[in-house]
């Protein structure tokens, strides 16, 4: 199954990818491909491959766009959501998926993230959240935990971190969820839900960066980091059955927030329609 999937949805001429051994980004990219495959082959959702546009910014995560055999555009640092906004408004039929990283989405692109969420434009933003800037060699990002080490935080990070999913929810996103690279099926399912959702969806997926974040912060090898995810990231169905004591130090994954606020391009289409009617009336 995986190799069929790769043949079908990846640009195999351009593989192997550039990510380090143990990096979680490949898993997330595969999750996105599986989610799309399941939606494309679902006669009820009727998604075609040509309708899908993958938009990315700059950073490790954003190289994923080039590997995926869809309409793809690898844009400038932080601006993927703004490019995606133009694509969606130019052709609302397109299913626009943004692949971004924690630095790309919440630092340099933070303004675009909150405003796209506020408009509730129908994009699905998948944040490859590895807690660090990987491409440039291990600097702290807006989600690096307080006190953690990075090449630009040799004495420990003074900043307070963002929770990207909560940030998006606070800004108005009508679907937010969190996934990881250990709980593959759960993560594929929230990506599917995010794509199916008509408004702005933000899916924060915890990736792993053993090369920089792991090494700087003594988190062990890639397998140790995966194990940490297995033990500490709890699917929402189980999380709320836990005692307060058992919840200590654990984080919830799965769907976090959902509302049916009207989607932006559909609202704008009503304005175009009203103008058309007014023209006819003249």
């Amino acid at each position: 199954m995986p190799s069929d999937l790769i043949h079908e949805y990846m640009r195999i001429d351009h593989l192997p990818h550039i990510w380090c051994a143990g990096c979680g980004n490949g898993t997330i990219m595969r999750d996105v491909a599986v989610a799309l495959d399941e939606l494309i082959t679902d006669p009820e959702f009727a998604l075609t491959r040509d309708q899908v546009v993958i938009v990315s910014g700059i950073g490790c995560s954003s190289r994923a766009a080039g590997y995926m055999d869809f309409n793809s555009i690898h844009t400038t640092h932080g601006r993927a959501i703004a490019f995606a906004t133009g694509i969606k408004l130019a052709n609302p039929r397109l299913e626009v998926i943004v692949l971004t990283g924690d630095g790309d989405a919440s630092a340099i692109g933070g303004n675009h993230l909150i405003h796209a969420a506020r408009r509730n434009i129908g994009l699905t933003v998948i944040c490859f959240d590895n807690l660090i800037y990987g491409m440039t060699g291990g600097q702290y990002s807006p989600v690096t935990p307080h006190g953690d080490k990075a090449t630009t935080a040799p004495y420990g990070n003074v900043d307070r971190p963002f929770d990207v999913a909560k940030l998006a929810e606070g800004a108005g996103a009508s679907y937010t969820a969190r996934g990881d690279i250990y709980h593959v099926r759960e993560t594929i399912d929230i990506i599917k839900q995010g794509i199916k959702h008509k408004g702005f969806s933000l899916i924060d997926v915890y990736s792993t960066c053993p090369t920089y974040y792991g090494r700087k912060n003594k988190k062990g090898e890639a397998v140790d980091m995966l194990k940490w995810q297995k033990e500490n990231l709890i699917p929402v169905s189980k999380y709320y059955t836990l005692s307060e004591q058992a919840k200590e130090g654990k984080l919830v994954i799965g769907p976090l927030h959902h509302s049916n606020y009207p989607e932006y391009s559909a609202e704008y289409a009503k304005i175009i329609e009203a103008c058309k009617e007014a023209k006819k009336g003249k």
């Binding site: 555009i73 601006r79 703004a82 490019f83 995606a84 133009g86 694509i87 675009h112």
Partner: peptide
């Protein structure tokens, strides 16, 4: 950025 996206 949006202008470039729309043109694409």
């Amino acid at each position: 950025a949006a202008v470039l996206g729309a043109s694409a």
